[in-house]
Simulated assay, not measured.
Amino acid sequence: METTRIGNEDSRATAGKVFHPLSEILDTSNVAINYYEVPPGETIGDCYHRHHEQEEVFYVIAGTATFETEDGDVVVDEGELIRFAPGEWQQGMNHESPRLKVLALGAPREEGPTEIRRECPACGERTSAEPETTDNELVYYCGVCGAETGRYSF
């Protein structure tokens, strides 16, 4: 049995967002667990994406999340949950809450292949994106033209 308090693990903060990866500190083997705090106008995670093998469930602890999907936007209020099956495109956003707090659960823990799409300023549309990670930065590049589509320090 493992217990923890959010904030006892290594966390990352980017663009005012707080991200707490909880799987490792809880020593989970079959489920990924992440906690997010997101200010207004920011997204949960960094891009529109889909996991080919992992399903995800998001529980809104505080605030209101809006999830962009292929079928349109879905609003999830405080105390509600939303599930994405493997292969479903999604990205969560805080459009209005002072501080959105979300617990994300994914199974299996190892997410397998993930497709990512981001707005490319050079191409003028949402294109595939390739991430590169260094010790203190995450940079996304357009999969079509190679232009940088996002840079996050942590």
Rank of each mutant, 00 (worst) to 15 (best):
T3K: 08
T3C: 01
I6R: 00
I6H: 04
I6L: 14
E9Y: 05
D10C: 12
D10N: 12
R12Y: 15
T14H: 08
K17D: 00
K17I: 08
K17A: 02
K17S: 00
F19G: 09
F19I: 11
P21H: 11
P21E: 12
L22P: 00
S23E: 12
S23G: 12
D27I: 01
S29H: 14
S29W: 13
V31T: 15
I33K: 15
N34S: 07
N34R: 14
E42S: 01
G45Y: 08
G45C: 09
G45S: 10
D46H: 08
C47W: 07
C47T: 10
C47V: 07
Y48C: 13
H51E: 03
H52G: 07
H52V: 10
H52S: 10
E53F: 11
Q54W: 13
Q54V: 10
E55G: 14
E55A: 15
V57T: 07
I61C: 11
A62N: 10
G63W: 05
F67T: 05
E70C: 06
V76T: 00
D77W: 06
E78S: 04
G79F: 09
I82E: 11
I82N: 05
F84P: 06
F84N: 00
F84R: 10
P86T: 02
G87H: 08
E88W: 03
Q91T: 03
Q91F: 00
G92H: 00
N94R: 03
H95V: 09
E96I: 09
S97Y: 03
